[in-house]
Design a protein around this nucleic acid. Structure first.
Lengths: 316, 316
DNA sequence: GTAAGCCATAGATAATTATCAATATTTACG
DNA sequence: CGTAAATATTGATAATTATCTATGGCTTAC
């Protein structure tokens, strides 16, 4: 058949004829005159090069070939119906819903990302699913969420991930601490200091502990505090040293000293991740675009490492 | 979007642009000038009502919406590619292939049906799969064959079946047998005769045994022979009585007597069966049509009971 | 800064399409 | 056989489409 002159409209007309079993009825259903439909069918028949209709039991019924065309037409039109629903979804843009799988260790970055966005797009509904790394990984495998937030992205074929935020972890001390006066330090000199730590599982603590393990250091005097803010204030008041994300200091204009220890600040990143097989809901796509465009407005330039483009390519 | 002015051609052009990432290249690929393609894209963009393309990395790349349209276009065109292969298959008509599931008991009807057809359409390749009833039923369930030949069609939702041939089973005796002289007989008078029977599971034997059970008769002297031909010849030579399909006699100009027993000939039919979910290959469809049209040319009118129309309607 | 590519726009034209009203033809049915 | 209903055909027209050539604007590469 000659597909070049095939119109979707022609298929619509054809479908109406098959459904009604009559050219006149199809015509009135489509608000056309009977000859118009007659002609369209003729044209379609010519395009296909085979008879499509035959009269059986007083009705127009598709021939064997016509029946196949009918199904092809239904499928093609159906596909574009889907595309249309997608379009109207996209047209809304500011409404919608998406879900976010978040590793527990990442839950502290969330507000930073989401609050500007949700203020801008109050119509968008975001669902969080917070779990430990392995449970979020499993959610990823089963494609349960639209987007994922990791501090270390999973590996594998279907992972599409992009870093977007540097997360330097600095070693801080009270301003009056003896080490604050030094131009350079070895960590071994601090081994007996009291360290204020986040709870186990915190990304910051994990990073720090991994580093300690790598370097074969063991701390003797630690104190667990469950909030970055309280840790910062405690360091200010001289309670001990701590490793904290630099962000938490910058935001608060902290009165602490950064200790110039080799390897510090420890570098890590936040990653936004999606599954390559899953079509991103419009809202999720918007969210990434929004972050991509406005990241610099609410985060200091030096913390930005924007690879979010990577998430916007591909099938979606 | 306005689907009314959407052409398949437009989608082809669009696909070429996405694939090449360039309007000029798409144009040369399609043997068009660059402005033509430019305009087509413009028109398509208007029809959709959203930007479809954007320039990234020096190339035209689809936008989020454009990507979806690309996939919709691929799907729709792909669907019509399939339809086209169907068409060219159908255009051949006299070429092709189909497979036939045949109950063992039906294998003797097969040549009758197929030899005229295969002579007419030597390009068509027919595969037989002959098995006992339960194995053919299983093939039917798994939709392994295109058509099936049963003497009793399966029951169930997806069965589409049509009778096409009466299969009268007659009671025959040697010409010199005492019963051959009688004008009418009761079966009870024959109860002690020797009966030549087909193997268990044969349609003929099943029919006969069902009838015996209904009538509460029990035979005392039976001999099993695995071929209708041999049975017929054995009856001719005086070995015993038998119940046989009338066809096997007519074809062979048999020298036997038909006994005028009440209820005989027993009436059964041959059924052609297909699975409603399976699309009939063109060749199979042709076969049915051919049988439908020419049955009367090679079978005596009195044996015909043509319901093959039933197989030609519906999806196919 | 200039040439080479790419793209968009404009203007023009032939072909095609969508559509109608009027009329002819076929089909079905009493 | 005659009439009503459904279809097909014809003739006409406005709209749309497909296409081209020519031209000007914008990037990019040297």
């Amino acid at each position: 058949m000659n597909i070049r002159h095939l119109t979707f409209r022609l298929l619509q007309v054809y479908i109406a004829v098959i459904r009604t079993g009559s050219i006149s009825q199809a015509a009135s259903q489509l608000h056309l005159t009977q000859p118009t439909v007659s002609q369209q069918i003729k044209r379609l028949t010519e395009a296909v090069g085979e008879e499509l209709l035959e009269i059986r039991e007083g009705q127009y019924q598709p021939t064997y070939v016509g029946r196949e065309l009918y199904h092809a037409a239904l499928d093609a039109l159906g596909r574009f119906d889907d595309f249309n629903s997608f379009l109207s979804e996209a047209a809304q843009g500011n409404k919608g819903h998406f879900s976010l799988g978040v590793v527990t260790t990442a839950q502290y970055v969330l507000p930073l990302l989401l609050s500007p966005y949700t203020q801008q797009y109050p119509g968008v509904d975001v669902t969080f699913n917070i779990g430990n790394r392995s449970s979020v990984l499993q959610r990823f495998q089963n494609q349960l969420d639209d987007l994922y937030l990791f501090s270390h992205p999973p590996t594998g074929d279907h992972v599409v991930s992009g870093r977007f935020l540097r997360n330097p972890l600095v070693l801080i001390a009270p301003l009056k601490h003896w080490a604050a006066k030094r131009k350079s330090l070895k960590f071994s000199e601090l081994i007996n200091e009291r360290f204020l730590m986040r709870e186990p599982g915190s990304a910051t603590r994990m990073m720090f502990e991994n580093w300690l393990r790598d370097q074969n250091y063991q701390l003797h005097n630690t104190l667990q505090i469950e909030s970055n803010e309280v840790i910062r204030m405690s360091v200010e008041t001289g309670l001990g040293l701590a490793v904290l994300s630099e962000h938490t200091l910058a935001q608060a204009n902290a009165k602490v000293a950064l200790l110039p220890v080799k390897d510090f600040p420890l570098i890590s990143h936040w990653y936004l991740v999606r599954h390559s097989d899953r079509r991103l809901p419009v809202a999720a796509h918007n969210f990434i675009q929004y972050m991509n465009a406005h990241l610099s407005e609410w985060v200091d330039e030096k913390y930005i490492r924007n690879e979010l483009d990577l998430l916007l390519g591909g099938r979606g």
